[in-house]
Amino acid sequence: MAHATGTVESHVQHHFKSSDQQFSSAKLGMWLFLFTEIMFFGGLFVAYIVYRAWNPELFTLAATQLDTVLGAVNTVVLIGSSLTVALAIRAAQFDKQKQIINYLLITIFLATVFLVIKYFEYTHKFDMGILPGAMYTFEGIDHPKANVFFSIYYMMTGLHGIHVVIGIGLMVWLVLKAMKGAYTSSYYTPVEITGLYWHLVDIIWIFLFPLMYLID
């Protein structure tokens, strides 16, 4: 809602001096939040590295149970969704209301594709008895700590999946707001911030893919 009232546009909160100051504050805040996200996932990466250093043979054995093709497809899907969210921001910067909504919808679609593929991967493993934690019953991997590998796998991809779901939720909210014409070239902070979040989700998958699926 960028209708000007007086000299200051109404989207600028009272404690900021200018729209620019507010925008760059929001961005810095988001980068700090991404910092915490990196440390949050970082814990899981530490568990991964420690266990891989202890049991390199386990990781080679267990990774054969993961479908490289599906992992690769999901990588490309997420890269594509990163592009579309960047395009949505660009559309906002050029005041193209329709395009904002369209690009966000494509992003939501791609994110859903990612989750559907993940769903098939998970259910396939569940059927084989590769269940998380103590429910693990699969006997195809001859290693006493095979359950730990899949615990790490489920924790990492699961936490990533939760972030994808949150991302979809955020973008649905953006679409609803964008339909009311909330975002213009002078105010599109939520789109920008959600974009940053979504790119981080992409970056984490960029690391997860070779670390989980491509071990030999």
């Binding site: 996200e37 949050f40 970082g42 814990g43 266990y51 934690g133 429910m135 615990s151 924790m155």
Partner: peptide, 21 residues
């Protein structure tokens, strides 16, 4: 603090699912 968050999340998972980490 995020590392505490993931630690406690894993501890909760350890109690509920028995992830074995």
């Amino acid at each position: 603090t995020p590392v505490l968050a993931i630690t406690l999340a894993l501890l909760i998972m350890e109690r509920t699912l028995g992830i074995g980490i």
